[in-house]
């Protein structure tokens, strides 16, 4: 899932597999680091269940989905600074609509909201394509519109979500954390069909080199709108994750996810220039960031301090990665 799928007979030669690993080395490293950290914690605290997958996934779910939203857009060469406010808006609206809903109604409401969020994302993308205004400016502006709308709808926290709906996202399905099921389902149902279609190839192509893609006859505008629509749908899922975990609505709930979604995307090995990376890396990075947070909190560090640490990790990683790149280029 890192990099666009290569059709036809991959692995025809032994080099092909090696090449695939090399091209997604960063993702492999992040997943490895996540696994190692989990293993170490199991060894150090064998009796603690604080670190079991269930609570880790519950805590990380909104960030994982936010990172997926960001990744869809970044792969197409854009950036979405409205991910956080969009999550707030979905959180607020869903909590309001679900206050007296049954579980079945809640699911229907969620599906409807997801379609609306995807449409809102598509609209953002369409505005970017039609106006030629840089992504940063447009999404910063739409972010403020969504945030303002959320605040307007719910000036103080309120609303509710039915317990069944909450359990669907944060409970357990069998012995598997349902959050993990949500992520995998989102990948399988939302991302992979697009990813494997010509539209997915176009999305990567547009992110990699827009002019070349255009000259190759790719419908550049359509590909970019698709990416933002995917982003909107994932952000809506992230909003539901917030609703499910807090069982209420809060216009400020999603605010921090703009920053952290970008952080997880970058840590997940997705090139901010677009065209390079996949979905696994950012999801792993989101889990990693959450795990580090949980560990610090458990070790008695102030939760706010772990926020600083999280920010500092991201800044340091991008700075070191940048420096390595600069040195390699200079040599």
């Amino acid at each position: 899932m890192t990099g666009p799928p290569a059709p036809g007979a991959a692995g025809r030669r032994p080099i092909a597999a090696l090449r695939a690993v090399r091209r997604s080395a960063w993702t492999v490293a992040i997943v490895g680091l996540l696994g190692a950290l989990l293993a170490v914690e199991k060894l150090v605290h064998p009796t603690l269940n604080v670190f079991d997958m269930q609570s880790l996934v519950d805590g990380a779910l909104p960030l994982c989905l936010a990172a997926m939203a960001q990744t869809a857009v970044v792969l197409s060469g854009g950036i979405d600074l409205s991910v956080g406010p969009m999550m707030s808006l979905v959180n607020v609206v869903s909590a309001l609509l679900m206050t007296h809903a049954t579980n079945g109604q809640a699911v229907l409401i969620a599906l409807g909201l997801m379609a609306v969020a995807a449409a809102a994302g598509a609209l953002t993308g369409a505005v970017i394509v039609a106006t030629g205004v840089p992504d940063i400016i447009v999404t910063l502006a739409t972010g403020f519109v969504w945030g303002g709308l959320a605040l307007h709808i719910m000036p103080i926290p309120g609303g509710a979500a039915p317990a069944g709906f909450a359990a669907l996202m944060t409970g357990e399905l069998g012995s598997v954390p349902s959050g993990l099921v949500v992520i995998l389902a989102a990948l399988a149902i939302l991302w992979e069909p697009v990813h494997r279609s010509p539209a997915g190839l176009a999305l990567y192509a547009v992110g990699s080199n827009r002019a070349a893609a255009y000259l190759s006859g790719v419908a550049v505008g359509r590909a970019r709108v698709t990416a933002y629509a995917m982003g909107g749908a994932f952000a809506a899922l992230g909003g539901f994750a917030l609703t499910a975990s807090t069982t209420n609505g809060n216009a400020a709930a999603g605010t921090s996810y703009t920053l952290t979604s970008v952080a997880a995307t970058v840590l997940g090995g997705v090139s901010l220039a677009g065209g390079r990376g996949g979905m696994i890396g950012p999801v792993a990075a989101a889990l990693l960031l959450t795990l580090i947070n949980t560990l610090l909190t458990f070790e008695g560090v102030d939760p706010n301090f772990s926020l600083v640490v999280q920010g500092a990790i991201v800044v340091l990683v991008v700075m070191v990665a940048g420096l390595v790149l600069v040195r390699r280029r200079g040599a």
């Binding site: 952080a263 920010g311 800044v315 420096l323």
Partner: peptide, 15 residues
Amino acid sequence: CRVQPLIMTLGMAGV
């Protein structure tokens, strides 16, 4: 370090 300004300053704002 040639970090993208958006990332760097967003991270700085977080810290």
